[in-house]
């Protein structure tokens, strides 16, 4: 009995640590809408934002990403699970959600986009970027146009369904 209680205590500590959440201070969170992110993603880079929208699509191969939209824009916003979210359930499709997370901005070349499978939808939420000089020279040397774009997504730290 004593052994069982010891094992139970170890598990309690184990899972106690596991459920510790990485909630950010409310004052650090910027409430924005999808259009704002679309217009000024670079300015919000690495900041914690909170955005609401309707879930257009949840990736069925693991539920690691979903796309949000709202009435004011035709663009969709890519949201990826953060370290503390196991997955997005596919039944979220069509629901309104409030997502909090870090806005991650990255420069992606056209060749990288072609290799990113389902992520092609994320390109819809992107804007043209100035090509780095080195890449522009390389592309010009090969007789191609440098088509680097900025893509962005939210790495979600929490989300909830809004009824």
């Amino acid at each position: 009995m004593k052994k069982i209680l010891t094992v139970a205590a170890i598990f309690a500590v184990f899972f106690g640590c596991n459920t510790e959440n990485g909630q950010v201070n409310d004052t650090d969170v910027k409430k924005v809408n999808i259009s704002t992110i679309e217009a000024s993603a670079s300015e919000l880079e690495d900041q914690t934002v909170q955005v609401t929208g309707m879930v257009l699509h949840v990736c069925k191969h693991g539920g690691q990403k979903m796309f949000l939209t709202n009435d004011s824009t035709e663009a969709s916003l890519l949201v990826r699970v953060g370290p503390r979210i196991p997955e997005f359930d596919v039944t979220l499709e069509g629901s309104n959600v409030e997502v909090t997370g870090k806005l991650v901005v990255s420069v992606v070349s056209n060749t990288e986009e072609a290799h990113d499978g389902e992520d092609h939808q994320a390109v819809a939420s992107s804007e043209p970027a100035d090509c780095p000089a080195e890449e522009a020279l390389k592309a010009a040397g090969e007789g191609e146009e440098c088509t680097t774009t900025i893509t962005y997504h939210i790495e979600a730290s929490s989300f909830k369904e809004i009824i």
């Binding site: 596991n18 503390r84 196991p86």
Partner: peptide
Amino acid sequence: KIRNRKVFREMNFLHYNKPKQLW
């Protein structure tokens, strides 16, 4: 119509390391 497949969903959840962290 979509529904979660029982048992396999749970096993895959663990196999894919979706709980992350201590798992």
